[in-house]
Measured scan of single mutants.
Amino acid sequence: MAAAAAAGAGPEMVRGQVFDVGPRYTNLSYIGEGAYGMVCSAYDNVNKVRVAIKKISPFEHQTYCQRTLREIKILLRFRHENIIGINDIIRAPTIEQMKDVYIVQDLMETDLYKLLKTQHLSNDHICYFLYQILRGLKYIHSANVLHRDLKPSNLLLNTTCDLKICDFGLARVADPDHDHTGFLTEYVATRWYRAPEIMLNSKGYTKSIDIWSVGCILAEMLSNRPIFPGKHYLDQLNHILGILGSPSQEDLNCIINLKARNYLLSLPHKNKVPWNRLFPNADSKALDLLDKMLTFNPHKRIEVEQALAHPYLEQYYDPSDEPIAEAPFKFDMELDDLPKEKLKELIFEETARFQPGYRS
């Protein structure tokens, strides 16, 4: 834990890192770190609560700039109880001085990944967590956004079992017609939660990839272990087919990539493993919904509104309290091709509203 900075004593240090967030945020305490930044909790002297502050230093890398800009653009436009918001952003007053960006968010005690390492969940908890994931996802999908990296560590939890989806750095506007060349190379989302079509096709992607990830998360809540822990690309596919069985001819016809289709045709026939054999203690309604989410063919996979209306979630289902976005989200430009200098300018502009004396 960093010592509390005395008023006016300059930035606090946390594990050798400068955290320049005073005077409003003090009493910093280390939480963890990701690929390009550290997260601390801090005391907000204005709202009198502890908050989470993520320090991001992305400006050396085009990919990190892209992810940072995506996350900020999306989260500043989203407003939903099951999606983490941005409360404040701290950065230098000029673009030349801006080396880091500090993002202030609600402090959540833990995440689903940490929880599943230590606790076996009751059916009631599984049901409530799944409902909140789908409630947040309904809003995301209504904005025409794909999260693309749903996994237990991106689901934040607090002691009252509130759940918030975080990390929109890989999110995209849904565009089933656009052929994202190089899709697989830039697709760094965790393999275990990846839909089979991501490994088999490169053309376009749809909201059904997020539903697949939610199915993987439900299976993990039922058993405290990942359902498809593939060691590499082909191993991942083999794990999936080992449980779902061989795809039907109709399902194979959806695979545009001939090499991928021929690979699947070359494999020995596998039978589907019954879900109640894998999860003998699970609620039968939970397994019915799991089956509809972990469907090989993305066109037959359940959609988020149908999933919310499934009998497993009937005690929570309330369409009048499951809000959607006001308007579909649009990125003005494809960020993939922009140089990091341009992305830095866009991050600077996007964060201006939090600067003292800002006038829109």
Score class of each variant (00 low, 15 high):
V173L: 12
S223M: 10
R225I: 06
R148E: 07
L222D: 05
L155Q: 15
E81A: 07
D149A: 15
Y187D: 12
E314V: 13
D336N: 13
S153K: 05
A6V: 11
T68P: 15
S208D: 06
G182Y: 13
P319H: 07
M333A: 06
I31Q: 15
H120C: 12
L200N: 09
R194F: 06
N257L: 10
K270T: 05
L343S: 11
L130D: 07
P23E: 02
Y312L: 12
G136N: 01
N253H: 11
A189T: 13
K99W: 01
N45P: 12
C254N: 06
I72P: 01
E345S: 11
D332K: 05
I74Q: 10
S223T: 14
L116K: 08
W275P: 02
S266P: 01
A2D: 11
P274T: 14
P339E: 09
E12W: 08
M199K: 14
N201Q: 07
P247R: 04
L244E: 03
N201I: 15
I198N: 14
A42R: 02
H232R: 01
E197I: 08
C166R: 09
S248M: 08
A42D: 00
G242N: 08
A9K: 09
L335H: 13
L200K: 08
A260R: 01
T110C: 10
T181C: 07
C127P: 08
N158M: 10
N281A: 07
E33G: 12
N87P: 02
F296G: 01
A42E: 11
F331L: 15
A282E: 11
P356K: 10
L252M: 14
L252F: 03
Q62D: 09
A35H: 08
L150N: 04
H232G: 00
D106Q: 09
V173C: 03
A35S: 15
S266T: 01
Q132I: 06
I227C: 08
G245F: 05
S122A: 06
Y317T: 12
N257K: 14
K300A: 11
G182A: 09
L289T: 05
M293F: 06
G37S: 15
W275M: 12
F168L: 15
Q355W: 05
Y187L: 02
A219F: 11
L137G: 04
Y233R: 07
L258M: 15
F329R: 04
N224M: 05
Y131I: 03
L115A: 05
A143W: 06
V51E: 13
F296T: 01
L218C: 07
G169F: 07
K272S: 05
T185H: 05
L150F: 07
A4H: 09
F296M: 05
T63M: 12
L346N: 10
G16R: 14
C127Y: 09
I198D: 03
E350G: 00
Y187S: 11
S248L: 08
H120T: 09
Y128S: 10
Y358P: 08
T190Y: 11
A325Y: 01
N297E: 03
N47T: 14
D332Q: 05
G85S: 13
T190A: 11
K55P: 13
P280D: 06
S41A: 12
Q119A: 13
E314W: 00
K342C: 04
Q119E: 12
H232N: 11
I86N: 13
Y36L: 15
C65L: 14
P152W: 03
E345T: 03
K117G: 10
G215N: 11
F183C: 11
T94D: 04
N224S: 04
H180F: 08
I103F: 14
D283V: 13
R67A: 11
D235N: 13
N201S: 00
M13S: 11
R77A: 07
F348S: 07
N297H: 11
Q62S: 13
T206G: 05
L69F: 01
Q132N: 07
L156Q: 14
R277P: 07
L289Q: 14
K270F: 10
Y25D: 02
Y25N: 14
P247T: 14
D175P: 02
A171R: 09
D106T: 04
L244F: 05
Y358D: 10
F129P: 02
G230F: 05
I243F: 14
R70Y: 00
H180E: 10
I72S: 12
L267V: 10
S213N: 11
A282L: 01
S223Q: 10
A7S: 13
F59T: 12
K164P: 01
K272R: 12
E303C: 02
T181A: 00
N224Q: 10
D291G: 01
F296R: 01
K300R: 12
I227P: 02
